[in-house]
């Protein structure tokens, strides 16, 4: 009984974890290139959730088709925030860019509250389910997982097989090295911030498959926190490492939830959150560069 429940939950964990991983790629990319921690990360996930919701409810657009729209909206937002708020602060102390990304998040939350009210909403995209006996997987969730994995693979190929992607990796390794090759480092910063935000908004679309009624302007906070844990698991500056970090996180979250639920008197949901962050602390102490990166 418990094993059936555990294996079912672990499988659910992998599915959700893949999407968590995708939701962290943007954070890792921005940190890797600009060394800026996007504290407003979750607010961009929230924007993606509203993009999916609005397109579905108002225009009847299926969520997978909302992904390109979300990428474009996210990249545009990224460019606007980069040139208005981030660019000038890159040479300043770290606190400056932290406050700036935090403010970007607050602005987005309040704008969305004005546009959509703070009421929690959701939509239901019925695609059918896959019944495995010990657990049931809705097709929509499987699709979100597949989409996340595909985006991860595309990002990997872009970074390793294209000139533009390799130029961005050069900037990650050394600004000065990139400059002497004639790479426009300032543009690479803008582009990576923009792509990072684009990916994050896209992940918001995919995450709506998992939250039937949870879309609200302040939903981003818990995702920001999870993304920090996942980013550290995956090696901080590595976007595809983040994908595997997400898988590990999903497994741990769901596995520990199932196990904590077996202990009478414990509140499993709160314990799971405690466990995740206790893990973050331990990893930071033992391997500050992340679990998956050897360096």
């Amino acid at each position: 009984m418990i094993f059936e429940q555990l294996s079912g939950n672990l499988l659910q964990g992998v599915i959700l974890g893949g999407v968590y991983g995708m939701a962290t790629m943007g954070l890792s990319l921005i940190f890797g290139v600009l060394k800026v921690v996007n504290v407003g990360h979750g607010a961009f996930i929230m924007v993606g959730a509203y993009v999916a919701l609005t397109l579905f409810q108002t225009f009847g657009v299926a969520p997978p088709l909302a992904v390109p729209a979300a990428m474009v909206i996210g990249m545009a937002l990224g460019m606007v925030f980069y040139y208005s708020a981030i660019r000038k602060l890159l040479k300043g102390p770290e606190l400056a860019s932290l406050l700036a990304t935090f403010s970007c998040g607050v602005i987005l939350e309040e704008v969305c509250k004005q546009l959509f009210t703070s009421e929690a909403r959701g939509y239901n995209w019925e695609l059918g389910k896959l019944d495995l006996g010990f657990t049931v997987l809705p097709h929509a969730k499987l699709l979100a997982f597949g989409g996340s994995a595909l985006i991860g693979i595309l990002l990997y190929l872009w970074f390793h097989k294209t000139r533009a992607g390799m130029a961005m990796r050069c900037v990650v390794e050394s600004d000065e090295g990139a400059r002497v090759c004639g790479i426009d480092v300032d543009w690479e910063y803008a582009l990576s911030f923009s792509i990072g935000i684009g990916l994050t908004v896209v992940s918001g679309v995919l995450l709506t498959m998992f939250i039937p009624v949870g879309i609200n302007p302040y939903m981003g906070g818990s995702y920001t926190l999870k993304a920090f844990v996942i980013a550290v698991l995956g090696g901080l500056a590595s976007p595809y490492g983040a994908f595997f970090g997400g898988l590990v996180f999903g497994l741990i979250e769901n596995g520990s939830y199932t196990l904590f639920a077996q202990i009478p008197g414990l509140e499993p949901f709160a314990m799971t959150r405690f466990f995740s962050f206790a893990m973050l602390l331990v990893i930071l102490l033992l391997r500050p560069t992340g679990l998956l990166k050897a360096k």
Partner: peptide, 8 residues
């Protein structure tokens, strides 16, 4: 200090 791309 070289600044080569060590991972490449």
């Amino acid at each position: 200090g070289k600044h080569i791309f060590k991972e490449m």
